[in-house]
Write a protein that binds this DNA or RNA. Sequence first.
DNA 1: GTTGACTTATGACACGGTGTCATATAGAAT
DNA 2: ATTCTATATGACACCGTGTCATAAGTCAAC
Lengths: 202, 202
Amino acid sequence: MPKITFFNLPEDKRENLVLAAKKEFARVPLYQASISNIIKDAKIPRGSFYQYFDDKEDAFFYLLNSHVSSYKLHFVQTIHKNNGDIFDAMIDFYTAIITEEKENMQFLRNLFLNMTHRIGNVMTRSFGETDLNEDFKKITNLINHEQLNIEDEHELFHMMQIISSVTFHNIVKKFARELPFDEAVNNYRTEIYLLKKGFVSG
Amino acid sequence: MPKITFFNLPEDKRENLVLAAKKEFARVPLYQASISNIIKDAKIPRGSFYQYFDDKEDAFFYLLNSHVSSYKLHFVQTIHKNNGDIFDAMIDFYTAIITEEKENMQFLRNLFLNMTHRIGNVMTRSFGETDLNEDFKKITNLINHEQLNIEDEHELFHMMQIISSVTFHNIVKKFARELPFDEAVNNYRTEIYLLKKGFVSG
DNA sequence: GTTGACTTATGACACGGTGTCATATAGAAT
DNA sequence: ATTCTATATGACACCGTGTCATAAGTCAAC
């Protein structure tokens, strides 16, 4: 977490610093990003940076969290929009992510191509942290269970884990191979379809 | 790839260097590993390291590749052992990975908890690089298709993608949460079971 | 056994990034 | 005014990287 001093900053100065950080993290992944670049861009002295953040990671995770918050909101809306059909909602959500705008896109690209566990954990703590998580319940309550071939909470939890693994992997692949939009969406559709029907005839 | 000089090295010296590198990459993930530690441990001068490798990553990927090669072999054997049942084979394989010994374990742990796309790509290039990959065909030929609810090559490919996403994620989770063996295996079994039966009744 | 051509070894060094710290400045409160 | 607290600043020590000039070794040819 950024230090109190950061939040006490006049809004324009804070915003300016945030923009510089965003720019750097859109340029390269976390481990390659440099504080030197950020302060040069934000035109603040080196010492100041350390008044606001513990280190590079602190700044990064602050940005990441704000991204995640807004995506979480968007995700909930998407489930509503699809009347609780989690599969359609995921496809909607997936297309939204891969059609982000320029700078956000670069940020996301670096994020997904360099998705360590620590980062992934921040992103999925909505459905994943502990099995009986607040956010998890909030989301699963929005899901229409009627169509689902799922016995209990436990299976539901693992279903969501699978869906998120597969979704992550599809996003990564899209960025890595620089797949055209249609191809990326078709791949994802195929995988969601396979998840629905199951791998074994029965 | 390491330079020719590396391969020209007398075996004991080369082995010694490899061990030092392994030790460092078992200690910390790639981006935190330091050449300084490796050369200190291997008792070679700094300049020598650069005679053998381009940089840290070069050494890392050399090690990674040799790991991957041996796992690939093991994977093929596992499919045979399970008479082409890919699901049973995966569970076998999963348990083998999470029961690795001490130093290998630490190496794997750092590997999976810091699995960027570049690293993941090396590990799954068996089934994934290009859709009609040699290795992919070699592996899918070993799989018993009778039980599968799969229409064609294309679906098969995506099935394998899904299985590998889910497997990766389960390994990561095992390491991250330091799950006891039984819990980790049960989680994985559940997810494989769900993949087999499908999420939607019908 | 000396020369020359090539390969390998070595460690000092320049460079760049990090995090700290002593000092300066500002603001508020009494 | 004075004191207390919060903030700002940039020089600096530290450490890791990759390079490069130089030294040492190998080997074949003469």
